[in-house]
Computed example of a mutant assay.
Amino acid sequence: MQALMLRALGIGLALFSTLLAAAPTPPGVRAELDGLFAELQRQQCKLYRNGSWHEAAQARQHMLRKLAYLEERGTVQSAEQFIEQAATKSSTSGKPYEVQCGQAPAQPSRTWLLAALAAQRKARAASAP
């Protein structure tokens, strides 16, 4: 009986710690990520992953799923963390992602996302009072 109670307590603590680890992304970071996902769509960029190209809306949905996956495991502390951990390669195959916008040549998703993030931050800083 005591062993069963200890086991139940252990399971309860494990579930509780899992709930504590899962946390939403801070609002400022989430705003930056939403801006990146919107820019993917605004520029009608395609995302190359696991051997095929995906249109902008699909790319955005895929990135949102990856963000949700990371949030289930803890808080995403920065846009750079999300890019490095989830937006540069397939977690299944390990193959790198590429982004192609319009007629521009394809480039590694890391390169495109970091450049778009820098542009977003520069524009926000320029418009700040």
Rank of each mutant, 00 (worst) to 15 (best):
Y48S: 05
Q43T: 04
S78R: 06
M5Y: 09
Y69Q: 10
A87D: 02
Q2V: 10
A22N: 07
D34K: 10
E55V: 14
W53H: 05
A21N: 06
Q120D: 13
R110V: 08
E72V: 06
A86Y: 01
G28P: 12
A22Q: 13
F16H: 06
E71N: 10
S109G: 04
T18N: 08
A119W: 02
P108C: 05
A8H: 05
E55F: 12
E55D: 10
K66W: 03
G35F: 02
A128W: 07
L47F: 02
A8V: 12
T25K: 01
R124I: 02
V76I: 10
A8D: 11
L117Y: 00
Y48L: 14
A126H: 02
I11E: 10
R65Q: 06
A119I: 05
G94W: 03
Q58S: 10
R49H: 09
C45K: 01
Q44Y: 04
A87T: 01
A118D: 14
G74V: 12
R73G: 15
A3M: 08
G10Y: 00
G51S: 10
S52F: 07
L19H: 10
L9S: 13
H54A: 12
R60H: 04
L13C: 11
R60W: 00
F37C: 08
R110C: 07
E32T: 03
S109H: 02
I83D: 02
Q77Y: 08
A31V: 06
C45E: 00
K46S: 11
S52L: 06
A23M: 12
A3I: 08
S90E: 09
D34T: 15
A22D: 06
A3Y: 09
